[in-house]
Amino acid sequence: TIDDAFRAIERAIQAENEGRYREALKHFLDGGEMIVTAAEKEASQKVRNLLLHKGKEVLEWAEHLAEWILE
């Protein structure tokens, strides 16, 4: 659900702030994927587009974090 997705993102932010970057990455990926999944089930085109945009933002952040971890 969207609530689960945002809880995962909150955990990711907390982990990132505490320097637990790999854990943060996992939570960002989980949250982003949950948002995209919820968007695919959404009946309203406007809400679907907003959710897809937010999911994409979260997944892009996860990608940047992963690249930073690997440096």
Rank of each mutant, 00 (worst) to 15 (best):
Ala43Thr: 13
Glu33Phe: 14
Leu65Asn: 00
Gln45Ser: 10
Glu16His: 15
Gly19Cys: 12
Leu59Arg: 07
Arg22Asn: 11
Ile2Met: 08
Leu29Asn: 03
Gln45Cys: 13
Arg48Tyr: 06
Ser44Gln: 08
Gln14Arg: 11
Thr1Ile: 11
Ala12Tyr: 03
Lys26Glu: 08
Leu25His: 03
Gly19Asp: 02
Met34Ile: 11
Lys46Cys: 14
Gly32Phe: 15
Ile2Lys: 03
Ala5Val: 07
Phe6Leu: 08
Ser44Gly: 05
Asp30Pro: 02
Ala8Tyr: 10
Val47His: 04
Gln14Asn: 08
Ala66Leu: 13
Leu29Cys: 10
Trp68Leu: 10
Asp30Cys: 14
Leu70Arg: 13
His53Pro: 01
Arg20Cys: 09
Arg7Tyr: 04
Gly55Leu: 15
Ala12Ile: 04
Val47Ala: 06
Arg11Ile: 06
Lys46Leu: 12
Val58Glu: 02
His53Ser: 13
Ile69Met: 09
Gly32Tyr: 15
Glu71Val: 09
Glu33Pro: 04
Leu25Thr: 00
His53Thr: 13
Ser44Tyr: 08
Arg22Lys: 11
Trp61Ile: 04
Glu42Asp: 03
Thr37Ile: 11
Lys26His: 08
Trp61Glu: 01
Gly31Arg: 04
Thr37Cys: 12
Ala5Arg: 01
Thr37Lys: 15
Lys26Trp: 09
Trp68Glu: 01
Asn17Trp: 11
Asp30Asn: 11
Ala15Trp: 04
Leu70Phe: 06
Asp3Ile: 14
Arg7Met: 06
His53Val: 11
Trp61Val: 02
Ala43Phe: 10
Arg22Cys: 15
Glu16Trp: 15
Ala8Lys: 09
Ala39His: 02
Leu51His: 01
Lys46Pro: 07
Leu59Ile: 06
Ile9Met: 03
Arg22Pro: 04
Ile9His: 00
His27Ala: 06
Ala38Ser: 06
Val47Asp: 04
Val47Pro: 01
Leu29Ile: 11
Lys26Ser: 05
Ala24Cys: 10
Asn49Phe: 11
Ala38Met: 13
Lys54Thr: 08
Leu70Met: 11
Thr1Tyr: 08
Ile69Lys: 00
Val58Pro: 00
Gln45Pro: 13
Ile2Gln: 02
Glu23Cys: 11
Ile2Asn: 03
Ala24Glu: 01
Trp68Ser: 03
Glu67Asp: 10
Asn49Ser: 10
His27Phe: 13
Arg22Gly: 07
Arg7Thr: 05
Leu25Lys: 01
Ala39Leu: 11
His53Glu: 11
Gly32Cys: 13
Lys41Arg: 11
Arg48Phe: 05
Glu57Arg: 13
Ala8Ser: 05
Lys56Leu: 11
Arg7Gly: 03
Glu60Asp: 09
Asp30His: 11
Leu65Lys: 00
Asn49Met: 10
Glu33Asp: 09
Gly31Phe: 15
Glu23Asp: 12
Gln45Phe: 08
Met34Ser: 05
Phe28Pro: 00
Thr1Gln: 07
Phe28Asn: 00
Gly31Cys: 10
Glu18Ile: 06
Gln45Lys: 10
Glu16Ala: 15
Ala12Asp: 00
Leu50His: 07
Arg20Ser: 03
Met34Ala: 10
Thr37Asp: 07
Phe6Ala: 03
Leu25Asn: 00
Lys41Met: 10
Glu60Pro: 00
Asp30Ala: 14
Trp68Arg: 06
His27Gly: 11
Val36Lys: 12
Ala43Asp: 08
Ala62His: 00
Lys46Gln: 11
Lys56Cys: 13
Lys54Arg: 10
Glu23Ile: 05
Arg48Cys: 12
Ala62Asn: 00
Ala15Tyr: 11
Glu71Pro: 05
Ile69Arg: 00
Asn49Val: 06
Trp68Phe: 07
Glu10His: 13
Glu42Ser: 11
Arg7Trp: 04
Asp3Lys: 14
Val36Gly: 07
Arg48Trp: 08
Gly19Gln: 05
Glu42Phe: 12
